[in-house]
Computed example of a mutant assay.
Amino acid sequence: MEARTRALIVLLVALVLIDLSWTAAVDHRSASIERRIEGVEQDQQEIAVFAGASGTTASGTQEHVSLYAYDKGRGEAIAVPARVASVPTDGLYLNVDGVSHTAAVQQSMRTAWETAEASKHPPRYRGAVVDVSPPKSWEIVGGGSAALSLALGFAATNECVELNESVAVTGGLSSDGTVVQVDRVLEKAKNARQRNVTTFLVPAGQGVAVDGIEIVGVSTFREAATYGLNQHPSCIGNTTEQSTIEAPIERRVPT
């Protein structure tokens, strides 16, 4: 009889432990599911915000820039097209057309935006959308060599300046607007020459010799802007609009 009683007690204890274990497992799974649902909801919100920001580009101001990059698969430099838009919304939104990108690319965009905002030709609005279109064969986009080009693109959304189409750019940026050195300058310069660009801006100290194209080293964003931006004809002689622009931007011909 005592044996049967002990067996019954053991069975009851086992059932209680199983119930507690199952309950804990259910609670853990429920919490996990809740976190996943919250993550999906957050993703949906971010997608909705990006879609909303992208939808405002029609009322914003846009520029198209070329981001010079090195394609390791091909073993050559290429110019990656990008659309830069200043839009009437808050935040910066980056779309790399379905290709993964590194944190360095995002930081490059933020630094470019902050540099343009602090310049004498800030973007027209407080938000921006950047659409980058790398080759479909690429799996990931990395590096920070696009910052200088993006900063010029952001600045060119100011209605009183426009991009100088004869000038191409490569270079990173630090937070104070100093141009940072990058890799593969020679290959990028050769690609720019093939695209009929007459002047290629590179970080100071990284000058290379390429026949048929002027290579100019620049140390700061302000210096790069004197080559890469032209004053828009509509603002010549206008002293009331865009008072944040301190002086006309004139093309400097390299000597």
Rank of each mutant, 00 (worst) to 15 (best):
V132E: 04
S59I: 13
Y70I: 03
A31S: 12
R29M: 08
N158P: 06
G153P: 08
R110Q: 08
Q106L: 12
S86G: 10
P81F: 10
E162C: 11
T23E: 13
R252M: 10
E214C: 10
A112M: 13
A192V: 02
T226R: 13
I249P: 01
S32P: 00
Q62G: 07
K136C: 00
Q107R: 06
Q44V: 12
T111E: 09
A14P: 09
V141W: 02
L94P: 12
P135S: 11
I215F: 14
A151D: 04
S66N: 03
G127E: 03
D27N: 12
Q107H: 10
Q206K: 14
T115Q: 05
A209P: 01
I215S: 09
N196T: 06
E223V: 01
L94H: 11
L148Q: 07
Y227I: 00
I78S: 12
H121S: 15
V40D: 07
N191I: 05
T56S: 04
A224R: 00
S174H: 07
A48T: 07
P203Q: 06
I249Y: 15
L92M: 07
A51H: 08
S32G: 14
T170Q: 00
G75W: 06
T226C: 12
F200P: 00
G207A: 15
I245K: 15
I140T: 14
A53D: 03
G142W: 01
A103Y: 09
N164Y: 14
G212I: 00
A146W: 12
R29D: 10
A79C: 03
A25F: 13
T199H: 06
P122Q: 02
S133W: 11
G127R: 11
V10I: 09
L8A: 08
V167N: 06
S54L: 12
L229K: 00
A7P: 01
P122H: 09
A189W: 00
G205T: 09
M1I: 00
L163P: 07
H121A: 14
V197G: 05
L94T: 11
S137Q: 02
A51F: 02
D90E: 10
V84G: 01
H28M: 14
F50I: 02
G39C: 06
A192Y: 00
D97G: 02
F154L: 12
S100E: 11
G172W: 02
S21V: 08
D131P: 00
A82G: 04
L94R: 09
D131C: 03
R124S: 05
E214Q: 14
R4T: 08
I37V: 15
L173K: 12
G144F: 15
S166V: 07
Q62N: 13
R251A: 15
V141G: 01
T198C: 02
R195Q: 05
V16H: 08
F50H: 13
Y93L: 07
W138L: 10
A146S: 15
A25S: 11
A25M: 15
S149L: 01
A7W: 08
A24P: 05
Y93G: 04
D97M: 00
V167L: 06
G73M: 11
Q242T: 13
C235L: 14
R110W: 08
S54G: 06
E139Y: 05
S32C: 10
N164A: 12
A77E: 12
S166L: 14
R252P: 04
A189G: 06
R126V: 15
R83G: 12
I9K: 04
R4E: 14
I215C: 11
A247M: 03
Q45P: 00
K188V: 00
E165Y: 02
Q62L: 15
V167G: 11
F200Q: 04
Q45F: 13
R74K: 13
E34A: 14
